[in-house]
């Protein structure tokens, strides 16, 4: 891809570096960034600073927990209010219009120009390809549910499943045993994503099936960053980066239960 001349500017490097750390770059741009990091000590230093900041934020900031009392008040909203009275309520879009001084208008115009420049960066972002990934992973999960069994190798023993992947794919994702937490291992299967075979672990929770897709991603260390939760076609999808693999979990399980599963899984994977 041809870069506009302005792309060499430092500011744009920083934006790309941030996007890289946020895992928002497409594969080619991420590789490119890795190469630049290896050759540019200043960029490397900035990378380390940002990584430290992230670590500090993730380890020090806790999310709020609603008190039971508050939770009750919130669930009461749906019970008390007859919805008809509210059906015409429109949620306002976040548009803020306020008077501006002339010089500020100029500043705003400069901002707009800056934004237009930055617009060229969309092409480097991975959002689309990632959306396809999730769609593909969910579709595979659905297909697996329609098949006679959602796995190719049936075993609740991780010492059977792990070598099976090893022999089949020459890949060895972490397989953890969560039977004691109520998520017994059911087996494993192979899925083809973007033309490459990837291992999928299958767990069960009551009648629900949980697919854990492990996409190899060499050179990436396991992180403690929070998992990314989305939904697709009613399935909960949770993603995170583990040691050498990017993991995606799909299930029709309630989101909080699936979160619990991911939490236990990651904890168990770290202990190993």
């Amino acid at each position: 891809m041809n870069k506009p001349p302005s792309w060499s500017s430092h500011e744009e490097s920083l934006l790309l570096l941030n996007a890289y750390l946020d895992n928002e770059l497409d594969a080619a741009s991420a590789l490119n960034m890795e190469r630049r990091l290896a050759n540019d000590p200043a960029l490397r230093a900035e990378h380390d600073r940002l990584a430290q900041l992230r670590k500090a934020l993730r380890s020090q900031l806790t999310t709020a927990r609603a008190s039971d009392d508050f939770r009750k008040r919130i669930s009461a909203i749906a019970e008390e209010s007859p919805s008809d009275n509210y059906s015409s309520v429109v949620v306002p879009l976040p548009v803020r219009t306020r008077p501006m001084n002339d010089w500020r208008r100029i500043a705003a115009a400069a901002t707009v120009a800056a934004i237009v420049t930055a617009g060229g960066m969309y092409v480097f972002l991975r959002s689309n390809s990632e959306a396809i990934d999730i769609a593909a992973i969910v579709a595979d999960h659905q297909r697996a549910l329609l098949a006679a069994a959602p796995f190719d190798v049936a075993s609740s023993d991780r010492h059977t499943v792990k070598p099976w992947f090893d022999s089949k794919l020459a890949l060895s994702p972490q397989v953890v045993d969560l039977a004691n937490d109520g998520f017994p291992l059911a087996g494993g299967r192979v899925e083809v994503l973007e033309g490459k075979p990837v291992p999928v672990l299958v767990y069960r929770r009551r009648a629900h099936v949980i697919s854990v897709v492990a996409v190899p991603h060499t050179g990436i260390e396991a992180t403690t960053e929070p998992s990314l939760v989305t939904t697709k076609d009613g399935y909960s999808v949770i993603q995170w980066h583990g040691r050498d693999f990017n993991y995606t979990v799909v299930s029709d399980l309630a989101e909080n239960e699936l979160n619990e599963f991911v939490k236990r899984w990651r904890e168990a994977a770290v202990e190993r």
């Binding site: 430092h10 500011e11 920083l14 000590p41 200043a42 960029l43 230093a45 900035e46 380390d48 600073r49 803020r96 219009t97 306020r98 008077p99 501006m100 001084n101 500020r104 500043a107 705003a108 400069a110 901002t111 800056a114």
Partner: peptide
């Protein structure tokens, strides 16, 4: 909104080369 426009002007400063 004016403040906001002002914030957008904050420049990303050059990173120093020495380990920080």
């Amino acid at each position: 909104a004016g403040d906001e426009a002002l914030f957008e002007q904050v420049e990303l400063e050059m990173v120093e080369t020495q380990p920080s």
